[in-house]
Design a binder for these strands. Structure first.
Lengths: 349, 349
DNA sequence: TTGTAGGCGTTATCAA
DNA sequence: TTGATAACGCCTACAA
C-alpha cells in the first residue's frame, strides 16, 4: 500500500549504478556525460519504481527553486484575475510554478506573503495592485522586498513606482486626460466623478488625470461633484446614489451633471445600476464612463465607454521584469491605456 | 552586497548555543523545552543576522511541505476565479500556500501539473473544472491522482465524481430541472437551448436536467432547437445567432421559440448580445436564462435569470475535503444551485 | 534543559 | 564516463 518513498538511491540500486550516475541520467546534468546504455537502464528502473524526484531536495542541492510568488489584492476581481492569467502563462513558459496570495489589500498579509516567499527561496515575487498613500505600509513592504531582492530574488510590481523595484506602471493620468478630452469633444460639459477611496493612488491618478484633462479645456469640477467611495461595484452604486440624492442628475439630462466618470469599470457598472434604480436612463439622462475594459463587462447595456488596459500582457510583462537580471536602477515600464468610446457616452447634441 | 545566506548555524554561533537549541528556540518544536533566557538570545541573534529559515530544508527535514496545488481551466473566467478565491482563503486559514495552474482545459497540462505537485510533495491537490467525456484523459488523470494520493497526498475535485476522489459536485440536473419548471410556470413553452460543447459533461448535465424538467411537464425540445457551441461568451453569441438565422426567434415573441436557456451565464450574456445585434429585444422577443450567477454580471440589463452557485463556499469546501484525512470511499458532496428569476424572463402573458 | 550526530533526497566535486 | 563523498540547511532521536 504505502511503501516508503522511492528515492534516487533506490533507482540507482535497481539499475545497478551509482547514485551519481542515476542523478546524471535522470536530469541530464550540466556535462551531458552518461552512456546511453546506462542511461536507459536508469530511466527504465526509475519508471519501474515510479520514481518521482523530490523537488525540495533538488532545490536544496541546486540552491535554487522554481517558484514564483504572486500577490494580488483580490483574485475574484476580474482586473486581477486577468493579470494573474497573464502571469501564469508567462511563468509556465519560463518553467516556473506560481504561488498565489490574495491579500484583500491587507498590508500585513502582503508582508507575510513576501516573507513566506523569502523562506521558500522563490525566484521572484510579483506584486500586483495599486498602493495606497499609507507611507508606513509602503516603506515596510519596500524594505521587505529590498531584503528579498538583496538575496538574489527578482521583484516586480504593477502599479505605482514607489517600492523601489522594477515596475509596470499604468498611464492613468494620460489615459483619463485623453478620455476627458474625448468626452468633451462629444459635447459633455458638466462632469461628476466617482473618485474611489481617498488614499488609493490609482484612483487618485485617474481622478487627477481626468480633472486636469478637463482643466486644460477650461472645464472645472467643483468638489460637490466629486464623490469618494469604495473601489468596487457597490462603491459605484453608492457614489451614484449620492450624486442623485444631491440632485445633480435628473431626467432628460437637465440636471447639473451630464456625464459621470467612475475610476474603474465595476464602479461604472454599479453607477449604472444606481441610475436605473433611481429611474434615470443611461445614457439618456447621464453619460457614464469607466476604466479597465473588463472583458466580462463588454456586453453590458449600454456598452461602456472606458479605457482598455492590456491586462494579460501586463501580467506577462511584469513577469519578464521580475525574472530578468536586476539592474542597478529599477526599470519603469509604462503601459498605455486606450480610450474606447461606446454607447454609454454618445455624442451630446 | 550579497553575503552568503545566513543559516541556522550562523544564528546558533552568534547566539553561543548549539544548532539544536537554535532550532528549538526558533520554531518551538514538539517538546517546548528551551530556557527563555536562551530563547531570547537566539531570537535576538536571528533578528540581528536577518535570518530567514529555508522552507525547502525544513520541508525536507520534516518530511512535509506546506504547499497546496490548485488546477483550474481558466483563471480569467469569473467562475473559476471565484472558486480560487474560496480556496486561497481556506488555504490561508490552514496555513498553506497555494500553487496555481491555469491549464486552458489541456489534459496534458493538467497531468503535468499533478506531476509537478507530486514532486513538490504538496500536501494536497485540488482540481476545479468539469471533465469532458474523453475517457482516456479522465483515466490518465485519475491514475495520476491515485498515484499521488497513494503517497499520502490529499485530493479533491469540484465537478463530476469520476476521478475516484473526494468530489464536490454541482447539482446541475436538479437545478436546471427546477429552472425549467419555473420558466414553464412563468408561461414559457417553446424553448431553445445553447447547450455548450458536445463532450462537456457539465454542459451536458445542465442540458439534460433542463430537458428532463420540461419533459416532466409534457414539453419536448426537438433537436433543431438545440445548438452546441463553445462554453464561452462567444459561443453563446454564435449559438444565438444560429438560432436567429434558423428563423426560430423573431420580433414580438412571435417566433417558434419564446425562451432560450444557455448553460452558463457568460454564454447567456453572449446570447443577449447576439439578440440585440439581430435587432431583437430581451426579454421582449425572447426570454433568456443562464447558470452560475456570476457576480460581475449581476448588473447586466435585463438582469439575468440564472442559477446561483456558492462558488467561494465551494472553493472552501473542496479545500477542506482535500485536506481532511482520506477515507476508503471517496466522499461526494453535492452542492445545490438556487434558481433566481430576474428580468430576463418575466411572466409571459 | 542542552548538545551531538545522523538523516532527509539531491547535486556537485573530485578522483579513479 | 563513472563512482565515492561531501555539501545543502534543517530537524530530531539520543545522549549528556
Amino acid at each position: 500500500m504505502c511503501r516508503m518513498t522511492v528515492t534516487l538511491s533506490d533507482v540507482a540500486r535497481e539499475a545497478g549504478v551509482s547514485l551519481a550516475t542515476a542523478s546524471r541520467a535522470i536530469n541530464g546534468s550540466s556535462n551531458r556525460t552518461v552512456r546511453p546504455e546506462l542511461r536507459d537502464k536508469v530511466l527504465a528502473a526509475a519508471h519501474r519504481l515510479r520514481y518521482s524526484p523530490d523537488a525540495n531536495a533538488q532545490a536544496m542541492a541546486r540552491g535554487r527553486t522554481t517558484a514564483l510568488g504572486l500577490v494580488v489584492h483580490d483574485i475574484a476581481d476580474p482586473y486581477f484575475s486577468m493579470i494573474v492569467s497573464g502571469v501564469t502563462a508567462a511563468a509556465e513558459r519560463a518553467g516556473l510554478m506560481v504561488t498565489l496570495a490574495s491579500t484583500d489589500r491587507d498590508p500585513e498579509r502582503e508582508l507575510a506573503f513576501v516573507d513566506l516567499m523569502q523562506r521558500q527561496r522563490a525566484r521572484a515575487i510579483i506584486v500586483a495592485g495599486g498602493r495606497t498613500d499609507d507611507a508606513d505600509a509602503n516603506t515596510t513592504l519596500a524594505d521587505a522586498l529590498a531584503e528579498y531582492s538583496s538575496h538574489g530574488g527578482g521583484v516586480a510590481v504593477v502599479g505605482q513606482a514607489l517600492l523601489g523595484v522594477d515596475t509596470v506602471t499604468i498611464e492613468n493620468e494620460a489615459s483619463t486626460s485623453e478620455l476627458a478630452t474625448k468626452l468633451h469633444g462629444l459635447g459633455y460639459r458638466r462632469f461628476a466623478i466617482l473618485a474611489g477611496p481617498q488614499g488609493h493612488l490609482t484612483a487618485r491618478a485617474r481622478f487627477n488625470g481626468f480633472r486636469d484633462g478637463l482643466a486644460a479645456l477650461g472645464v472645472t469640477i467643483d468638489d460637490a461633484r466629486v464623490v469618494h467611495c469604495a473601489f468596487t461595484r457597490d462603491g459605484g452604486f453608492e457614489g451614484m446614489s449620492e450624486l442623485v440624492s444631491r440632485g445633480l442628475i435628473s431626467a432628460g439630462g437637465a440636471g447639473p451633471v451630464d456625464a459621470v466618470f467612475a475610476v474603474n469599470d465595476v464602479m461604472a457598472v454599479g453607477a449604472m445600476a444606481a441610475a436605473r434604480a433611481a429611474g434615470l436612463s443611461v445614457p439618456g439622462d447621464v453619460g457614464i464612463a469607466g476604466f479597465d475594459d473588463i472583458i466580462t463587462l463588454r456586453d453590458i447595456t449600454p456598452s461602456l465607454t472606458t479605457i482598455r488596459l492590456p491586462l494579460a500582457d501586463i501580467g506577462a510583462l511584469v513577469t519578464e521584469l521580475a525574472l530578468s537580471p536586476a539592474r542597478a536602477e529599477p526599470r519603469i515600464v509604462p503601459v498605455d491605456g486606450e480610450v474606447i468610446v461606446r454607447d454609454s457616452t454618445p455624442r451630446r447634441g
